[in-house]
Write a protein that binds this DNA or RNA. Structure first.
Lengths: 198, 198
DNA sequence: GCCTTTCCGATGCACTTGCATCGTATCCTC
DNA sequence: GAGGATACGATGCAAGTGCATCGGAAAGGC
């Protein structure tokens, strides 16, 4: 058998490079050569990992999606002792909104792909799937909050989850656009969660 | 004197072509040739109107910004008889969120430019300026609503305006991403405005 | 009718793009 | 080691990019 390479690791490395490039100069600055240079591999390696450029971009999006989803899931699964629903909502939505500085690149990537969606049905499908998962997650937390009586029963979990996710997305966008600072964004999110607590 | 041309009209025509292309296939599909073809003018004409491609994109963004701002302003200025603040908010924010089908292209453009912002300080400045104007406008409406006693005094106009604009942006994004239909988006917006009415 | 002045469309050019190709270096099995 | 399969990096290539150039078309003043 021949020389073995951890393709998965390399793919992730390349995906990170893609994210960095998108965050720095936007989606249309992503060329195979630049990606290879950023990831510090040869172009041949990139081509071996991904059949086409679109495959590469798709993987990068899935990479970010996975990151966001898993971070949100962990918040819940890892809670050995029960947490307040408000706390869960806060961490989950703050994570989804990608407000902290380290998530900024991912926020850019997410936005770039939403903008790119009409051009690629495959990308669009990944986006919708991720949104659906996040929505279900938020619904679950809201219901959980109602079970623990933190959140009054008269709220419609589905509607409230939709609102919260919308706010998170809006914050992502406005922080990226420079219209809000991460701090004011966090405040907005806090207030919206506060509304649910009776 | 030589043959005269209405440059402004042509610039707008080209900007519309840019928007159409962005909406159809994303920002990175915008080439001078394609723009010229879409606007049904020659490449030479495009080059005469805009010194560089970036100038063209900048004008397209300003075009959309102007469109959004003016539509919002008109809602208020044209109201010869006083309107309910709730109605003003509704129309203004629905306009900003670009929910109707005809605004879909503009929503795409807006999103594409937010994604492109880090690559161009000039673009970024236009975005921030537009956001600032819209924010001031929404603040004004909220205060107006407080003056007419539609909206309780205890609400902080600045904070509420920030929230509302955030929701509008989030809706733009989620509708584009295919996670919400324009109908559910409108419902979310309605509910958020409803919260303000005591 | 001519001439000046502005505008236009085609073409050229240097460069970058995504992808294909190919000889070589690398590693595992035997 | 020897052999063979695999991954690699450099190079090639056609297509497309933004921008510069230039000959000629159109439109008014004299």
């Amino acid at each position: 058998m021949p020389r073995q390479v951890d393709y998965e690791e390399r793919r992730v490395r390349i995906a990170d490079a893609v994210c960095a490039l998108i965050a720095r100069s936007g989606m249309e600055a992503v060329s195979l050569r630049d990606v290879a240079a950023e990831a510090d591999v040869s172009m041949g390696a990139v081509q071996r990992c991904f059949r086409t450029k679109e495959d590469m971009l798709l993987f990068a999006l899935e990479h970010v999606s996975r990151h966001v989803s898993e971070r949100a899931d962990r918040r819940i699964a890892a809670a050995s002792e029960p947490q307040a629903a408000a706390t869960l909502l806060w961490h989950t939505l703050a994570g989804v909104a990608l407000l902290d500085a380290e998530s900024r690149a991912q926020a850019h990537v997410w936005l770039a792909f939403v903008g790119h969606a009409p051009a690629s049905e495959r990308l669009s499908a990944v986006l919708r799937e991720t949104y659906a998962k996040l929505h279900d997650l938020v619904v679950w937390i809201v219901r959980y909050g109602q079970d623990t009586e933190e959140i009054p029963r008269h709220f419609d979990a589905d509607q409230e989850a939709r609102s919260l996710l919308t706010v998170a997305d809006g914050l992502t966008m406005q922080v990226l656009a420079g219209h809000q600072s991460p701090e004011t964004a966090r405040a907005v999110l806090q207030r919206h969660i506060g509304h649910l607590l009776g």
